[in-house]
Amino acid sequence: MISSRHTTKIRPDEIIFRAGTGVFAVLIIGVVAAIAFELYRQSKLSIYHFGWQFWQTDSWDPVAGEFGARPFIWGTLYSSILALIISTPIALGIAIFISELAPGRLRLPLVFLTELLAAIPSIVYGVWGIFVLVPFVRQLEVNTPEWLKVLPVFKGPPLGVGMLSAAIVLSIMVIPFTSSIAREVLKAVPQAQREAAYALGATRWEAIRMALFYARTGIIGAVMLGLGRALGETMAVTMVIGNTPQIAASLYAPQYTMAAVIANEFSEAAQELYLHALVEIGLVLFIITLVINMMSRGLIWSLGRQKNPRRARRILSTPAPESA
């Protein structure tokens, strides 16, 4: 590589090239900064008018001038965590199966199918959710045994739309994300680790457990990246969660999420304060996903760095057309 130290002078065309492409590089950083700035600017009114009270109030009634965003935080966190509980074991199972167990011929088709699950647009999951999943969940709720209904999570009328439907749709959508990153993370585990385990007489599962332990930070990172996806998911959730701002423990209760309230009410928000309140919800959603993504990328990166920095970058890259 040519370094400027050894050349007597830098060629002018080099400067033009570097500046010419560098401008676009800076532009991308500028977009991220502009998003943060614009969200703040458009929500100032609400931030200064309500302060912290905004996030501690339970009632959301824009017509009456009541703006309390706590139900949305609750709905977003509750649905995402439920989705994580459902999706994590399945996603890890898929990752282990594809990277450790599946015969070579099966590997590529399975990767393709899981990627297809990620490629289906959110709105399609929403349509399917409304017309297929919600009626199914309603049947499930109608047939809840009486002794289960004593528990607060199973209380309430069987509507179909609600937290349970949202969590199921979300987990379907998160599975491919978590599993593809966990798969890449497992691929970064040196083969010698597994061979050593086998040499010591480990069973298959014990060898896999070694690999999982070796890759634990990356696995946690993969799960958190899935969480980031779930928190921001909009359309499919909006269509099945019931859009009712309330804090309820029940899986059957219709609730609301941060992304859903923006999607539903943004184009109707006529007063300025109303609009700013919605943008403030967007700003907080932006900050939460930003922090979660940064943390998870840090975890995955720290794992890959030990042996092979190139590898770490490849795992982190956006889904590029690469094979198993």
Partner: peptide, 28 residues
């Protein structure tokens, strides 16, 4: 350093929820 920053910014942008991108585009 700029290359590292671009990589970071692109990954960050990729993680921004699409609805938030919509709010931003509405604003500008």
């Amino acid at each position: 350093r700029l290359a590292a920053a671009v990589r970071f910014a692109a990954d960050t942008l990729n993680g921004v929820p699409s609805i938030v991108v919509g709010v931003f585009a509405f604003g500008i």
